[in-house]
Design a protein around this nucleic acid. Structure first.
Length: 571
DNA sequence: GCCGTTTTCGGCCCGACTGTTTTCAGTCG
């Protein structure tokens, strides 16, 4: 899988071209291609082998040649040449906030800096002040940028950022001057990781709101403060941007601030083709500047002849074309979920009893859960022996008799062993209502081995769901090397559902993979994999992935009533 | 470098904030 490597190379080429002051649109073409590579679900080598690179939007003759060159030689000559022209330190300097191509070039040409530490020394000793356009404030900004650069953590998990955003919003809501308030940006699009939090407010008194925002207790530093737009850094190093607008342009600003950038660019291009213009204040006729829309997002889209596009779809991956044909699907909603098919208890590594899990599920309004404790091979997670599973089965039967309008499904998270065989015998799995299977060991095996393990598990008629199909842990463990295309085809052919695991560190399948699977006729289960009762709440993250993958209620098993569910999963 | 039921050439989204300037360039989203 060379997708990510190619994305990185294209981003670097774009940076180098920017330093060389090359054509702005060429630079953008490289960045767009890099982003596309990043988000591609399919292995770029597979696409290349079918000779279909140029079908990818933003990839033309030239870039497809470069991709092919990289696939066959692991190098791109053009890139190697460019790297000789522009020292790597310039690219590094550009990744410091406040330093762009112009400043990087200027500093490098004058001082020939070789490291960020050297740049820091220059700024501290006021050597930069001599440069044109540089004064004391510029030096301070660079020092602050370096500080951020040094301790910059990776993108934050949505699961960690969303509570912070919610907290800030509830703070600001208390102000009389705040009329309406919403998250925007990648938080609103529910991306799995986010870089900063965007918040949008309507108010007649922007200064009051902005003033309150920059003096919240969690603010460590004010990065920018204008009448309508301000940025702060929180004590835990997260940047939060606030935009205050007039209610008349709320929709326009919400749209603009939610993005994605690519989605905005595509919308503005569409408007331009009609002789209109979109900015954060509305849709305007260019000729006489007459405002055509802006109050709500719906109005914005409709003025362009489009159906409303939910934020999670706004990645410029075909949603605008769908909206033009009024074919935007009714995306899955949290309220559609009738149960959770991956629930642990204290019989393996969960922290609560089965009874407590049932109570919590009923409180959530669910109609069923599947109890999926680990099996014997997974000793680290207290995997249950065959005997223990049989006992649990009897307990579940007894408990079910007492329950009205709720059903506990007997299940297990059966370990897929190194040769692809399963950790439970068939005759026991047959007695379970539903079986979830997953890999928990041997992550380092080669691609064909990993793929074969999962394929063999799916071919078992008692296995209904493959849990966390790629095994990744965000910020901690890469997905194991697996041929997802083969897995997806086999899932469809064997009628095995793939899980979207809602654990914020997992989100596995991810959005792109889930969309790819959907397009190939696969069904899904969205499960929390909960180990503590509060983790039931993670379902919203799984639903978010599903929405980003364009899934509807019909694609997801656990939106079905229990009897229909049990019928549907039969192989 | 990409792209095209107006086009294979000539376009390519748009504005806010900052710091430095006396009207704007650089950077960011």
């Amino acid at each position: 899988m060379k997708n990510i490597n190619l994305a990185e190379i294209f981003y670097n080429i774009a940076d180098i071209l920017e330093i060389k002051n090359d054509n702005f649109f060429k630079i953008r073409a490289y960045r767009k291609a890099a982003q596309t590579m990043e988000e591609l679900a399919e292995d770029i080598e597979d696409i290349a082998s079918r000779n279909e690179l140029q079908n990818i939007p933003g990839i033309g003759k030239d870039l497809s040649e470069k991709i092919n060159e990289y696939i066959s030689t692991d190098k791109i000559r053009h890139y190697e040449e460019l790297k000789k022209e522009v020292p790597e330190i310039l690219l590094k300097m550009m990744s410091i906030q406040g330093v762009g191509p112009k400043k990087a070039r200027l500093i490098y040409d004058r001082f020939k800096v070789r490291s960020i530490e050297e740049l820091e020394r220059l700024a501290k000793s006021h050597k930069l002040s001599g440069l044109p356009g540089f004064k004391e404030k510029s030096e301070q900004n660079i020092l602050r940028g370096i500080e951020l650069f040094k301790k910059r953590s990776e993108r934050m998990l949505l699961g960690a950022a969303l509570p912070i955003a919610t907290q800030i919003i509830s703070n600001l809501k208390k102000l009389r001057e705040v009329k309406s308030i919403s998250t925007a940006g990648s938080v609103r699009r529910m991306k799995e990781t986010i870089r900063d939090i965007d918040i949008l407010v309507t108010s007649d008194k922007p200064e009051t709101v902005t003033g309150a925002f920059v003096s919240m207790p969690q603010v460590k530093e004010v990065l920018a403060q204008g009448p309508t737009k301000s940025s702060i850094l929180t004590k835990n190093g997260l940047q939060v941007d606030l935009r205050v607008v007039d209610p008349d342009c709320y929709g326009a600003t919400l749209l603009y601030f939610t993005g994605s950038k690519a989605h905005n660019v595509a919308l503005r291009k569409l408007a331009k083709s009609k002789g209109w213009k979109i900015n954060e204040y509305g849709v305007f006729r260019t000729r006489d500047k007459k405002k055509l829309a802006g109050k709500t997002e719906k109005e914005m889209y409709e003025s362009l002849g489009l159906s409303y596009i939910p934020p999670e779809m706004g990645e410029d991956t075909g949603e605008i074309e769908s909206a033009r044909r009024h074919k935007i699907p009714r995306l899955l909603e949290l309220a559609d979920m009738r149960g959770d098919l991956h629930v642990h208890t204290d019989r393996s590594d969960g922290s609560h009893s089965l009874e407590d899990a049932v109570r919590a599920a009923i409180k959530k309004g669910y109609e069923y859960i599947a109890v999926t404790d680990h099996t014997r091979s997974l000793t680290v997670a207290g995997g249950q022996s065959i005997r223990e599973i049989k006992k649990q089965l009897a307990d579940i039967k007894r408990l079910n008799k007492k329950l009205k309008a709720f059903r506990i499904l007997a299940s297990a998270e059966v370990d897929i062993l190194s040769d692809g065989s399963l950790d439970l015998p068939d005759d026991l799995m047959r007695q379970l209502d539903i079986v979830v299977a997953a890999i928990h060991s041997g992550f380092k095996n080669k691609k064909d081995v990993m793929t074969e393990r999962v394929l063999r598990a799916m071919n078992n008629r008692y296995v209904h769901i493959i849990s966390h199909p790629t095994g990744r842990l965000l910020h901690a463990r890469d997905p194991y090397d697996i041929d997802l295309e083969k897995v997806v085809r086999a899932a469809r052919d064997t009628k095995t559902a793939l899980e979207i695991n809602a654990y914020p560190e997992r989100l596995d399948l991810n959005d792109a993979n889930a969309r790819f699977a959907k397009e190939n006729g696969v069904r899904f289960a969205i499960n929390t994999d909960m180990h503590t009762l509060d983790q039931f709440e993670n379902m919203r993250f799984g639903v978010a992935v599903a929405r980003r993958a364009w899934l509807t209620k019909e694609d997801v098993l656990n939106t079905l009533p229990v009897n229909k569910l049990l019928k549907t999963i039969q192989k």
